[in-house]
Design a protein around this nucleic acid. Structure first.
Lengths: 259, 259
DNA sequence: GGATATAATCTTGGATACAAGAACGTGTCC
DNA sequence: GGACACGTTCTTGTATCCAAGATTATATCC
């Protein structure tokens, strides 16, 4: 068994990204490489590799000799990401509508089941929803399209994760996904397209609304809010050694007053 | 004037990427961090930053304790990239067709000029062609779409650069671009879409054909072919200090027999 | 010559050292 | 209190060091 290349850096990349998704690192937060290095018990080298990767993906900024910061929320950018996602998914659905044996049985198993068997946990449904939309694109067969769609999906995860906090949103999601699958299977392209775009826009508005609220909460009571969101999402299961209250991160620096 | 962050690494990133575009680094070539570091007169640290960035963008592979290699050409992947590009550009054109004041005057200046004033140099036309297609997407106004399209454009540049070696290809490009601009200005969406897709597919086939030929040539006579393509494209104008014949790169390693 | 065991050399990943200068705190002056 | 000067601390970017093991070269045996 040959060791994976850049193991520590890869692991850090995932963990730090999860800190953003879990609102442990809030938009505008400032931090240093040394802080992360000591939190994770490694040297600055792999931390820098992970941070630079995340910077190139648009999550962080770095100021020369002055530290790092989490990019502030930019809802115009989120709109553009949602729009790009819609373009890719609608194109995928258009193509799936034109073939007879679209490989969607796994999705059908999850989304066409009777209401009694549906999932109800917000976190679970959020993950299922991501999988649904990504697998739709994947089924269209273009791996580059799939890759870009997955990246876009991750970038809006921080919003999207809050789209399933009410039973009404979960029910709507199940109904719309089921409807979409049926339209694809019966090759009803125009209706499928219209439904999917409405579905995406609807979710976007909902997620944005709740995100602004959550962000406000996290700002108000830093520690408790962070713990709550951590409990709630629970994404980081890795062997984190000593990560004392990540909200302490800002240290003497002031957090920028960004949305 | 505050210094740019990661200056050496950023510059290396551009230069090494250009080595790929210029066929100085051929698909399958193997090399080490130390080689590049001494070629560019820096330490391994910024080289590693640049290489890892390029690796994440899909240009390189790295084997733990065993060196780096240029990803072999994968024409299926190129097809998928061309297809993704077509999706983005056609969507952009669809949207441009629906507005009255599409900001395309700069493009019109370049592509609607009388034949006597046209560019004829292959390298220049290749750059103009890239600009045309990227600005078309940019004009649609979605920055994320623009960003992805630019990345995709770079990834197929290594093929596309050979699409303008004959006068016939240059003339066809001028005619089709002019036609497309007129269709957009007159809001003739279906025709514009069909023309653009045909244009992209046509260019793809042409570029692929020539690329296979060029690759073969570069393999046969390493040094001269490299120098010629360097002269021809001349992309790297930076302050390269001591870069002796980059084709020596492989050293004792064997180059994989990849397309 | 050809195969095999063994030693020398290379290579990456991560830790550490260092330089230039940005941010910060403190003391001083008014 | 407020502004400014100055010295300390902190931070990033790059170079260098080191460990583990992959690769190559060499010696040995048949």
């Amino acid at each position: 068994m040959t060791r994976q290349a850049n193991q520590a850096a890869e692991e850090l990349y995932r963990q730090i990204k999860n800190e953003i998704f879990d609102f442990l690192l809030l938009p505008g937060d400032r931090f240093t490489e040394t802080e992360l290095a000591s939190r994770y018990g490694v040297s600055r080298t792999p931390v820098r590799a992970a941070l630079y990767r995340l910077k190139h993906e648009g999550y962080f900024d770095v100021q020369f000799r002055s530290g790092w910061s989490v990019k502030p929320f930019d809802f115009v950018r989120f709109d553009e990401l949602y729009d790009l996602r819609a373009i890719l998914e609608i194109t995928a659905v258009e193509r799936l509508c034109q073939i007879n044996d679209a490989p969607l049985s796994a999705l059908a198993d999850t989304w066409l089941r009777p209401p009694a068997l549906r999932e109800n946990d917000a976190k679970t449904v959020a993950q299922l929803d991501e999988d649904f939309h990504c697998m739709l694109v994947e089924a269209a067969g273009n791996r580059e399209m799939t890759r870009v769609n997955s990246e876009v999906t991750e970038k809006i995860r921080v919003l999207r994760r809050f789209g399933f906090l009410t039973q009404e949103r979960i029910d709507t999601t199940y109904e719309e996904h089921a409807k979409l699958l049926k339209l694809i299977q019966t090759h009803r392209w125009p209706e499928a397209s219209i439904l999917l775009r409405a579905h995406i826009v609807h979710n976007k508005m909902e997620a944005r609304k709740i995100t602004i609220h959550m962000l406000h909460e996290a700002r108000e009571s830093s520690l408790s809010a962070a713990d709550e969101s951590r409990d709630h999402a629970g994404a980081s299961t890795g062997p984190r050694t000593t990560i004392p209250a990540a909200r302490e991160v800002a240290g003497r620096r002031k957090r920028a007053a960004s949305v």
